[in-house]
């Protein structure tokens, strides 16, 4: 089957050339999907599920965006997120501080869930995707690419940076009436990170990554 793909350039990956027959993961219908032109999406003809897409820009665009996201994520964690000022009394928190505060208040389970969805999960997604993209982009057989790729797919719904951003906004409104709020460098980095990460995600397709991984072997 691999022989079907003769030349696969980095710019235009022919997503379905390897697997002319595709089975829908939501309704189990077998269908023949034509090679997708860059910038197009294939939907299941029976149930309408998103089968896969062939985003423009190959691996270069998502790699560039993910490198930006990596940098912003480090900044968002390294610098203070918000400082609360009540008549000169100040208290500062970082991104990890939210989870840490729950741990200190004897809510270990809650601390674990918040820590995983706001720090550990996103870190795995951002660093993992960057690593995988770099390996695929430069055709390097680096260790752990397959493991990381399947982890990224599995942990996708558990990275909740966007939900946390909404939580930050709600918390700011709640606190705004009782104290002065000083946004930190971390908050600006975090806000930009949301957009860069979303942009990166929209230029990525898991099938595309797996197809280029198969090429690598």
């Amino acid at each position: 089957m691999a022989g079907i793909v003769a030349h696969q350039s980095m710019e235009t990956l022919h997503v379905t050339a390897l697997h002319p027959l595709h089975v829908c993961h939501e309704c189990d219908t077998i269908q023949r999907v034509p090679t997708l032109a860059p910038g197009t999406v294939a939907h299941c003809r029976v149930c309408g599920a998103h089968l896969f897409s062939n985003p423009r820009g190959g691996l270069n665009t998502p790699l560039a965006l993910m490198l930006g996201a990596t940098l912003l994520f480090i900044l968002a964690n390294a610098y203070p997120l918000i400082t609360l000022d009540l008549n000169g009394l100040r208290h500062t928190t970082s991104l990890g501080g939210a989870s840490l505060a729950l741990w200190r208040n004897e809510r270990p389970l809650l601390a674990a869930v918040v820590g995983f969805t706001t720090v550990l999960g996103p870190a795995l997604l951002i660093f993992g995707t960057t690593y995988v993209l770099a390996a695929l982009r430069w055709h390097r057989r680096m260790a752990g690419v397959a493991t990381l790729l399947s982890w990224i797919t599995r942990f996708q719904p558990w990275g909740m940076l966007d939900v946390f951003m909404l939580g930050v906004l709600v918390a700011l409104v709640k606190l705004g009436s009782m104290a002065e709020i000083v946004p930190g460098v971390g908050l600006f980095a975090f806000a930009i990170l949301i957009f860069v990460f979303a942009a990166a995600a929209s230029t990525l397709d898991a099938h595309l990554l797996w197809d280029s991984y198969e090429d690598l072997r």
């Binding site: 609360l84 208290h91 928190t93 501080g97 208040n105 939580g167 009782m178």
Partner: peptide
């Protein structure tokens, strides 16, 4: 996943509002 927003609000408030007897 969007239902987690309230949990995050509580976590943030608990992390920020730690001003001893005042708040």
């Amino acid at each position: 996943r969007w239902s987690m927003v309230d949990v995050f609000v509580v976590a943030l408030l608990a992390a920020l509002v730690q001003l001893g007897n005042l708040a």
